[in-house]
Design a protein around this nucleic acid. Sequence first.
DNA 1: ACGCCAATCTACCAGTCGGTACAAAAATCC
DNA 2: GGATTTTTGTACCGACTGGTAGATTGGCGT
Lengths: 212, 212
Amino acid sequence: MIADEVRGRGRPRGFEENEVLDRAVRVFWEHGFEGASMSDLTAAMGINKPSLYAVFGSKEELFRRALVRYRDTYVAYAPATLEEPTAYGVVERYLRAAVDALTESGHPPGCLSIQGGLSCGPANSGITELLADFRAVFEGALAQRLARAEGEGDLVSGTDTAALARFVVTLGQGLAVHAAAGAGRESLQASVDVALRAVASFSAPPQDAART
Amino acid sequence: MIADEVRGRGRPRGFEENEVLDRAVRVFWEHGFEGASMSDLTAAMGINKPSLYAVFGSKEELFRRALVRYRDTYVAYAPATLEEPTAYGVVERYLRAAVDALTESGHPPGCLSIQGGLSCGPANSGITELLADFRAVFEGALAQRLARAEGEGDLVSGTDTAALARFVVTLGQGLAVHAAAGAGRESLQASVDVALRAVASFSAPPQDAART
DNA sequence: ACGCCAATCTACCAGTCGGTACAAAAATCC
DNA sequence: GGATTTTTGTACCGACTGGTAGATTGGCGT
């Protein structure tokens, strides 16, 4: 029995937390941490500053909350791709899904973890690190998945799986940069076509047709 | 006879234009357009604001000047790579040189055209576009070079050279993102190793061993 | 040596930044 | 129906933003 709506004792809130957080995500996504002012944020969220500070504490904490919300809402596809049975399948599904997500209509193009604050002023360098750590999480998970694939004989023995994982996420980040600059979905998918050739060159041939 | 030092009639300048511009490049490179305040800039450049405004006009114009200076100083290697005789050679040299430049000690890691302002506040969206255009220039030149390579039989006939060019610059931008986050040179070069496999798969076999 | 003129310095501008004090408003508990 | 408790709205805080006015400095041509 989870009762998160505790029937408070004072005046009830006039907004839902995730709802206003979603709006904050959009503003940060579009303008970055420093480019989004508190006025922009409160205007988009439809609440006043005191309410915002009462719930989220500070601009930086709001951003951290928004980043988590962004992950759960918009990047849930990424870990799911790791469940594909083959390494090639994982990479293909991830890159295809990434391009679709980066160019989906209905939200800003690109990726919050890139747009949010690749570089910040001296006071906000913590944001840059936060985002770098955020991106590193999936790279680590992908590297593990590809290492497993090599162990399973799914990638040719001796494959540098860490380099392959880094290649994939590096391309993914480049795709995010390009998407944010307005590149179309088809042209990005064409880049993915090229990248998949590299991945294919590491994929072990089907077991029933092993060479030698 | 070019006399750019006109021996002025009033008090001579106490600084050299390119010298202070170089310092501005570094500040923008590290903190981005919005993250770099005029105080940061003047402090690093060693001049006062009125001097700065007298020479450069505004923060945005200073950034435009800094970007040109950056291109001439730090990205001169890029167009030079197009002179390699083969498409594979062009791409390999470009990506290798890019990684070296992105991770070179003595200046901030990464690339000004990415760090400078991937996203900006509503007032400075012009900076974002300026940088996107800046990046697009090399992509266009590379696409042309690869198209020429296909015509010369250097790439297999029917190769989507535009997609290949986009793939290469997309990876390059991903490398810049990774480098800015502190990735090491070796690990980035390992990613390039992977990427080159894709490029190799488009390279026509040596003429003296043409198939069929 | 004097006047000219551009470059420099100090001090300042209005506007915005992130963040808050305080009182009115709206719900529950007794 | 108070008294209590929490949220909301307004109005404000000092600090800093990009950008400038005006007096001063210093090297040149004459």
